[in-house]
Structures are given as C-alpha cells and as structure tokens.
C-alpha cells in the first residue's frame, strides 16, 4: 500500500476540519468583504454603496478617526496607542520578572501570582478593575492609595475621564497578559547556553552587561514571538473594553476590535461594522505574512 493509505484517506481525515474552517472562517470572511460595500440597518445590509463606508470611516466618523484637532482621537488612534503600549509593557515587564525571579526562593510563588490573571475571564478581570478604578476612595484601591499617599489628591474617575481611560484599560490588559510573556521568557531564559554565560562571567562581565550583551540577543526569537502575539492581541481586543467601559465615556475608549462589535450589534449597522472588520484584516495582513514566513523558516 502507498504510504498514507489510499488517495482518499487524507481527505477523509481532513474533511471535518476543512468543512468547519471553510464554513466558519473562509466563507464568512468573503461575505464580510462583500457586505462592507453595503449600507442599511439590521443584520442584513441592503443597498450597495460601494466604498462609502470606508470613506465615511476615514473622513466622516469622529468616533473612529478625528484628525482636525490636537491630539487626534477616535478608535483608530486609540488602537495605535494600544499597539505601541501594550506589547511594549507586557514584553518589558514579562522579561523583567522572568529574569529577576530566576533562581530566587519564591520563584514559583511570584510566577504563579503574575500568571493567575491569564486564567480568569476578561469579564471577571473587568469587574476586578472597575472595582480598583472606582472613583469612590472608600471602594477603589487606586484612588484610596493615591489619596492617602499624596496630600490633597483629588480622586480620579479613571474610567470616566477621556484623557486617562485608555491608559487605565491598557494597564488592566497588561495585568492580564504579562504572565504569558513572563512564562515564555522564563522557559527560554532557563534554556540558555550556560557555558556562554559562564564564560562571560569569568571574563568579568557583570549581571547587567551579561543580560544586555549576551542573554537578550539569544532571546530574540521568544521576544519576537511575544511582541507579535501581543500586537495581534491588541488588534483583536474587545471584551475588556466592552465590560469595563462599553467604549465610553462618549466613545473615548473605543478601539477597532470594539467598534466592529458595537456598530454591528449595538448600532445595527452591519455593513458599516463589516467595513471596520475589513480594516482590521488589512492591519493584520502584515502579521499574517510574518507568521507564515516564520513557520516556513522553522519547517526547514
């Protein structure tokens, strides 16, 4: 018998997966592309409008993109803020904890504490942080700590003020996802070539130098992996924003992944929401290509 059974066998094994992937990913994506060219209300967009949704998104929707005053605002601008801050913070903090905790007596405990938020739902995490951020200093730990530490500090409505709300939600997201970065970095750090590190030590390099000159360059792959994963995460982010602020106050915390959902399911504009989803896909295409490239290289 030919290796792999007869010619139909592979397809029998693959058919359930292929059917589901086609029905739930490929075909819906194509439909979303088509509907992004339609207007009207409800789940079934009716009239064909061409690229009108896209031109309105980029020029006529202040909650999506507003460039006519400084600082620029809107969901797309907030998304850029997320794309910069979220991967930077999770990667830096994750690496810091992975390296500092390596070999200390309470390593397991501290790593478990940092990882725990990864396990709970974004919904529960949102409740936790709505509580932390409560403007009432007898409820919210953030305001309580700041009012007791800084004399004359006025409690801040972290989730109710447009200028701080995005930073407050990003902080919560970092709290959730840092554990992933830490776990990956910690495993990679422990598997570094000990002889190289030992040689550096013998040559008189301090811990600081050893990390920047030797360890970090050897950790380039896991770092790239985590940065890419966090970029994707930031682009898809939705439930945290939905439960913490529902995009508010006055749309100030909207991001692209949230806007898709909100336009479709809250404002009943499926065509308009589909156009935002396609913009999401366009932003992700470079990442998809990098992903495929990386896998191709690894397979060799």
């Amino acid at each position: 018998m030919a290796p792999g059974g007869n010619r139909r066998t592979p397809w029998l094994f693959l058919s359930p997966a292929l059917f589901l992937l086609l029905a739930f990913f490929v075909w819906p994506t194509l439909q979303t592309m088509w509907w992004s060219l339609h207007g009207g209300t409800g789940l079934v967009p009716t009239e064909y409008v061409g690229l009108e949704n896209y031109t309105r998104l980029l020029t006529g929707d202040r909650l999506f993109l507003r460039l006519d005053r400084w600082p620029p605002s809107g969901a797309l601008v907030n998304t850029v803020l997320w794309l910069v801050l979220f991967p930077a913070l999770t990667t830096t903090l994750g690496m810091l904890i992975a390296v500092l905790a390596d070999g200390v007596r309470y390593e397991k405990t501290v790593k478990a504490i940092i990882f725990l938020p990864m396990v709970i739902s974004a919904t529960a995490a949102s409740v936790i942080f709505r509580f932390v951020y409560s403007p009432d200093p007898t409820i919210g730990a953030a305001n309580a700590a700041l009012t007791s530490l800084i004399p004359g500090f006025e409690p801040v409505p972290w989730l109710g003020r447009g200028s701080v709300v995005n930073f407050a939600i990003i902080a919560a997201a970092v709290w959730i996802w840092c554990g992933l970065a830490m776990t990956v970095f910690s495993a990679a750090y422990k598997s570094l070539n000990q002889e190289v590190l030992e040689a550096a030590r013998v040559d008189g390099a301090g811990p600081w130098q050893t990390f920047w000159r030797i360890s970090l360059p050897m950790l380039a792959r896991p770092v790239t992996f985590i940065v890419i994963a966090m970029l994707i995460n930031a682009l898809k982010m939705l439930d945290l924003v939905l439960v913490m602020t529902a995009g508010g106050p006055r749309g100030a915390s909207r991001i692209i992944g949230f806007s898709v959902y909100w336009e479709v399911f809250n404002n009943s504009r499926a065509g308009y929401g589909s156009a935002i989803a396609i913009l999401m896909l366009l932003l992700l295409i470079p990442v998809i290509l990098i992903q495929i490239h990386r896998i191709r290289v690894e397979e060799r």
């Binding site: 819906p28 509907w35 499926a270 929401g273 896909l281």
Partner: peptide, 23 residues
C-alpha cells in the same frame, strides 16, 4: 492547507460573526 490553518490562527473572530450569525 497547513499554511492556511496558520493564517487562520491570526484571523479575528470579528470578521466572521455577522455571516455566521445569519447562517
């Protein structure tokens, strides 16, 4: 097929919800 599956790892669910819900 394998590369296609890898690409789908990245595709956001936001792209699929409306058509799947209609289905």
């Amino acid at each position: 097929i394998y590369l296609g599956v890898m690409a789908l790892l990245v595709v956001p669910l936001q792209l699929t919800w409306v058509p799947v819900l209609r289905l």
